[in-house]
Each structure stands twice: as structure tokens, then as C-alpha cells.
């Protein structure tokens, strides 16, 4: 058996959901790959587009209903009924963003800049952009192109490439 190491050369991430944790999962993995010197491409589609839409990207929410892992500060379970009250989701999401900032996790716009500063590339899905009636100028300046999934797959060639769907 060969023991030769075959390090990853390319990581292609697909972010299809727009909650705070889904978008950050993609961003952390993308930035981490760039920092390791791995070629990195991120494709934002469907609700994931919120992560690269200027108006939405720095105000992402985490779901306070239907999220069994949600806890009160201190660790007690978070009552689902409470999560549905107006303003609760906003407040919880704001708190979460503050905690992330304390760990030096940047806001989404800055995170995207960090990824492209290291040579990572950000793409938007054409189908989803059309569906949500968005234009290129609605998207972050860090988005290099609006492309089809077929074009994205073409970029994912190479035998040391991984596609990660979050």
C-alpha cells in the first residue's frame, strides 16, 4: 500500500442556505482552505445568496424556532414558543454575532474580502439570482461572476478536488 500523502489541491464549496450558521460554515471552511494554500471556490445559491447580497449579508439570522440546539444563555433549553415572539430571533442573532466577533470572526462582508485577498473566488448561481430578481450590483463586490452550476462543475476539475455542500 502506498503511504504517499496526497494533500487537497482544490476545495469547491456550495452554500445553499442563508442562516447565520450555514453561511459562516461555508466562509470558515473557505477561508481555512485559502489559509492552507488550497485553491478555493465558493458557489452561493438559493437562500445562500443572502450571504453575498449587500443588503442582507451583515444581518443574517439564526433560527430560534425549529432549532433544537438553541439554548438560553446559561445552557437551559430555549422554549420554541419564545423563539416565535417578534424580535426574539433578531436579538438572539445579534447576540450570536457579537460572540462571534469576540472570537475574531469578522462580519460577512469582511470575511468575503479575507477570502478573496488570499486568492479564493466567490460565485453566485445564475438560476437563483434570476429567481430572486437580483442584479450583479446587488451582490458583494467580492463576487467575481454569476455562473451556472455547469460552469461551476467545470471549475471543480482535478483529482485532488473536493466539493463540499453546506
Amino acid at each position: 500500500m502506498s503511504t504517499e500523502k496526497k494533500p487537497l489541491e482544490k476545495v469547491c464549496l456550495i452554500c445553499a442556505k442563508g442562516s447565520l450558521e450555514d453561511v459562516y460554515a461555508s466562509l470558515v471552511m473557505a477561508n481555512g482552505a485559502v489559509m492552507e494554500g488550497i485553491e478555493t471556490k465558493v458557489f452561493f445559491t438559493f437562500f445562500g445568496l443572502d450571504g453575498i447580497t449587500k443588503k442582507a449579508m451583515n444581518h443574517l439570522h439564526t433560527a430560534t424556532t425549529g432549532n433544537p440546539a438553541m439554548r438560553m444563555p446559561g445552557g437551559l433549553p430555549f422554549p420554541t414558543m419564545l423563539g416565535g415572539l417578534p424580535g426574539v430571533e433578531s436579538a438572539v442573532s445579534g447576540m450570536m454575532r457579537k460572540q462571534m466577533e469576540a472570537l475574531d470572526m469578522p462580519p460577512v462582508d469582511e470575511f468575503l474580502e479575507m477570502i478573496t485577498a488570499g486568492g479564493g473566488e466567490i460565485f453566485a448561481c445564475k438560476l437563483a439570482v434570476d429567481m430572486f430578481k437580483l442584479k450583479k450590483e446587488d451582490l458583494s463586490d467580492e463576487v467575481s461572476e454569476i455562473i451556472t452550476i455547469g460552469e461551476f462543475y467545470e471549475m471543480c476539475d482535478g483529482d485532488r478536488t473536493q466539493i463540499i455542500f453546506t
Binding site: M35, G37, A117
Partner: peptide, 16 residues
């Protein structure tokens, strides 16, 4: 340095 410059100084491993 900016992050971009950091990558320029230490390509493929800005922190490592």
C-alpha cells in the same frame, strides 16, 4: 500589512 499583503509575503501559508 493588509491581509492581501500578508498573503503576498507568505504565499499559501499566511499564518502557518
Amino acid at each position: 500589512v493588509t491581509i492581501k499583503e500578508l498573503y503576498g509575503l507568505f504565499p499559501k501559508g499566511p499564518l502557518k
